[in-house]
Structures are given as C-alpha cells and as structure tokens.
C-alpha cells in the first residue's frame, strides 16, 4: 500500500513537472530565422501562426534557405536584420509541389503582405528528389486539403500506420516539447542533434571540415543530368504545381513575386547554355506572368565566384541577393 502510494505520488509529480515545463517551453521557444533541417509540422504551424499581415513570406528551396551557411547569413535573415518584415519558410529539398503545399497552409491561416518564391528549373526534372515528394511534415498537414488529382501526382512519403507511428503522432500532439524536438535541437545546437553538433565542432577544430570541402569542389560532371532540357508542359508535375500556385495566389489576391533562381552558368555551361534551357525558362515565365505574378529574373545575375555549387550562393552571394531583393520586392 505504501509502495503504491509512493508510485502514484511520483507519477503525479512527473506528469505535473512535464506539463508545467511544456507550458514554459511553448511560451519561450524562440522563432528561428529559418526552418530547421528537420522541422516539425507543429513548428511550421507555430511559425505560420506568428506571421502578421505586414510580412513578406519567402517560400522555396535551399537556394533561399541558405544552404551550407549559418542561418544569420541567409539572404532573408539579412533582410530581417535590416528591419524588413520577412519570414523564411523555404527549406532544403523544396520544389514547386512543396512551395504549393506550404502556400496552402500559409493562406489557410494568414494573409501576408506579399509572397516571394523561387522557381528552380532543376526541380522540373523527374529525377529530382523532391519532384513528386512533399517534405513529410508538410505532407502530414496538407494531404487532406489536396485534390485527388494533386495527390495522384505525388508519391506519399508516409508508410502505413503502425503502433509506433500512431503513438508518435498522438504524443506529438499533446506534448509540445516532444512534437518540436527537432526544432528545439536545431535552436540549441544549430544542428540535427548534440552528437552531430559535437562532431561538426571537432571536424572544424581538427581541420577535417576544411579538407573535406577542398576535396569536394564542385565540377561540371557532378551536375550531368541535374537539368532536364525536354520541353516543359502541363504533364510535368512541377509545372502542374507551379500553375496551381499561381492560381491560388490569384484567387486569394496575394501580391506575389517569383524569383528565377540564380544559376552558376560558368559551372553548368555545357548543360544549360543551350536554347532548350532558355525556352523552358520562358515557358515558366509565361505561366507566372499570365497569372499576375511578377517575375524577378536572377538566372544570370550572379558571378561564378558567388556560388558554392550550381545554385547555392556563398555568404557574399547571399548578401548580394539580399541587396537585390531589397531593391526588387516592395515591402
């Protein structure tokens, strides 16, 4: 009897402490400059909820996210530093399908001042990893809102429901810290978890990171097949979602800008400096402009030295991009 009583007291104290800590956590978790590598659906909804009507929201892929750079050096973060109300909802592994999905979630809850998204021709290639796939957390949230036609274009990333996945999903709904654990780790360690952060620190201190970067200098052959130069039409999944994005923006009367993604033409000369690439870019531009989206063409604006690889900008490249966006996007 005494043991049973002690057990219930311990269980009650543990539950109360977790509940109290969760309330504190919910109020104190900061809004990060950009989404984590592995952001949770709960964190995405929380970020969308915090967006006000004066913000310009940036959607898209790693080029806008600030690939391989600290969050503070991404172009959108630099705009925020300059006092411009900008929210970065882009993420690594983006694509037109992903942009559309996040836009659906955004416009279901908020009406931002403007939306800026990047269009990257490499994502119109069926071989691209995100061509038919939504980021799993986004897929969880948006799937019920998609039409049957849109779902048919996508390959679901979620497997059948198992006991594990059921518990995980329901636990994440009631326990915020658990649901947003990936975002918390990113906020604290600036990496996926403590072990990876420690490993990265050791690699930096030992010079291994520098040696690895030197050994992985991008060469043109690494991008063979990255861009599909077949004519883009409505059967292309990315084009279908791009058209849906444009239609949704028009329907909701949202001021919109589409950035034609900065591309390293010196590196990709053999693959993209051909008439087919230009024609595909024009096709995309036509769809955007016909729907009332203002096109900002940065395809050839940046010098080769401002790129890390084919389409990701260095820190100075991101600073240059921030300058251009400040000039071209009306706040």
């Amino acid at each position: 009897m005494r043991f049973l009583r002690a057990f219930f007291v311990a269980a009650f104290v543990a539950a109360f402490t977790l509940f109290f800590a969760d309330r504190v956590f919910e109020r104190t978790l900061p809004h990060c400059l950009r989404l984590a590598d592995n952001f949770s659906p709960q964190y995405l909804l929380r970020t969308i909820d915090a967006i006000d009507g004066n913000s310009v929201v940036y959607l898209g892929d790693s080029a806008l996210w600030g690939y391989d750079l600290p969050a503070t050096e991404a172009a959108v973060s630099l705009l925020r530093e300059r006092g411009i109300a900008a929210e970065n909802l882009s993420y690594e592994g983006g694509s037109p399908a992903n942009t559309y999905a996040v836009l659906r979630l955004l416009l279901a809850a908020r009406h931002p001042k403007a939306v800026v998204f990047n269009v990257n021709l490499k994502e119109f290639n069926a071989a691209d990893s995100a061509y038919r796939k939504l980021y799993p957390g986004v897929e969880t949230l948006v799937w019920p809102a998609l039409s049957a036609g849109q779902r048919a274009l996508l390959t679901p990333t979620r497997g059948p429901t198992t006991l594990d996945s059921w518990i995980d999903e329901h636990l994440a709904q009631v326990w915020k810290l658990y649901g947003m654990r990936a975002d918390v780790r990113y906020a604290i360690f600036n990496d996926v978890d403590a072990a990876h952060a420690l490993e990265a620190w050791i690699e930096r201190r030992s010079g291994a990171a520098e040696r690895s970067a030197a050994a992985h200098v991008p060469t043109p052959d690494k991008f063979e097949g990255t861009y599909d130069l077949s004519p883009i039409d409505r059967t292309n999944v990315s084009m279908a979602f791009l058209a849906d994005t444009v239609a949704l923006l028009r329907e909701q009367h949202v001021r919109a800008y589409a950035i034609l993604t900065p591309t390293n033409h010196r590196l990709l000369h053999d693959y993209v400096d051909v008439p087919e690439y230009g024609r595909n870019l024009e096709t995309v531009r036509h769809v955007l402009e016909a729907g009332g989206v203002r096109v900002i063409d940065y395809d050839r604006t940046f010098a080769a030295l401002e790129f890390i690889d084919n389409d990701h900008l260095t820190a100075p490249g991101n600073a240059h991009l921030a300058d251009m966006l400040e000039r071209d996007v009306r706040p």
Binding site: E92, Y178, K222, F223
Partner: peptide
C-alpha cells in the same frame, strides 16, 4: 526532458540529394 533535448535525432525525411 534531457533525453529529448540531448537525444540522437531519429526523425526521418526523404534524402536531400543536392550535390
């Protein structure tokens, strides 16, 4: 709480294969 904050990441997402 410590296990959640300091634990290893096991969340899955599709592989990001850019470069």
């Amino acid at each position: 709480i410590a296990m959640i904050v300091f634990g290893a990441s096991s969340e899955s997402r599709f592989i990001y294969t850019d470069f």
